[in-house]
Amino acid sequence: MKYWLTLLLGLYALVAQAGIEVHKFSSPAVENDYKELVAELRCLVCQNQNLADSNADLAVDLRNQVFKMLEEGKSKQEILDYMVARYGDFVLYRPPLDKATALLWLGPAIILLFGMLGAFLFIRNHRLSPDDQDEESGNTAP
């Protein structure tokens, strides 16, 4: 059983190897920048994946482009600008805060506020109901 499992996993490793392109980074800092960039750039073909995860042809090309630009000494911001100039804010998983994205960025905070307000009201009503009178004396108000 163990033997077969080892063999199976070994075969799987072969398959997994096939889809990966190998980049020779000139320094660990560049490799780090590369990993960060491909994680936060969106693949335009399969839109719910980032460049790092996608096997689409275009994603491979764009990864190579990111690698090439980093090795040419371009900064991360220059590469992000390069991508945005071609594909728009859509390629960024963290789009800039502006009028169109305000709801996207502030939405969670607004929902949290509503939730806190609801919780506050609920707790206050609960406290004032008669069955909880004796319990209330033991608590300090927030």
């Binding site: 335009l44 073909v45 042809d57 090309d61 071609r86 594909y87 728009g88």
Partner: peptide
């Protein structure tokens, strides 16, 4: 052939 012009033009589909 290598799709570089496509990238410049923002081609994705």
């Amino acid at each position: 052939a290598d799709g570089m012009v496509g990238i410049d033009w923002g081609v994705y589909g």
